[in-house]
Amino acid sequence: MSKYLLHARGIHKSYQMGRVSVRVLQGASLDLRNGEFLVVMGASGCGKSTLLHILGGLDTPDRGTLEFDRQDVFTASDAWRRTYRSLSVGFIFQFYHLLPECTVLENVMMPRLVKASAMQWLLGGAKRTARRDASAMLDRVGLAERLQHRPNELSGGERQRVAIARALINGPRLLLADEPTGNLDAAMGEEILRLLVELNRGGQTIVMVTHDPKVASHAHRRLHIRAGVIEEAKARNGARPER
């Protein structure tokens, strides 16, 4: 297996804001190793989230390539990209983005249900396995007692842990976190960060967007987006995974 999970080369992305075209990314490139904890930093509006969305296959660049496991993400079919989003990537959002009509357990099950075929559903296996795995995942993030609660009955930290469990349920090789602590108080933020570090120690590759240097200090590598390009800064703990 290659030690690199992902290569982004010369990513360009601009947005049309009325009559003005805003160039957000102007040739951003990065290589991501397996098991790496990478932090992307930068000023507001510099294109951190845009980069994350492009890495996750949610957005398409104007120019540039993205290779995941040697497969070019943007020349692949829509179906491949859906599978990529569903199985290879897990998303964690700043505002959790849980489905309010569903319970905690159902939210975590959802990626499995999206993946399940009609036959798997009808035979009952898909739902049963999803329920079992989601319960186990929620147990892992310390929410075993909250399975039947609705998102609005949870604290911000708990919601984010549900979002992490949801992102991990399909065992993605890459976890993309968009300011996961940005909406939490310091204690809660620290708790979530500890969880992410723990996951990374378990071998999970993580790309996290943040503008908080304290949060960034937990990563192996820190990248800064300035004027649409990525610049590397050495992480405080410096260590790079050798996978």
């Binding site: 829509d78 599978t83 199985l87 489905l99 309010p100 999206v114």
Partner: peptide, 13 residues
Amino acid sequence: TRDIGVLKALGAS
């Protein structure tokens, strides 16, 4: 709309 985005992020077509 936001839920739709989430579902698409989870792989929904």
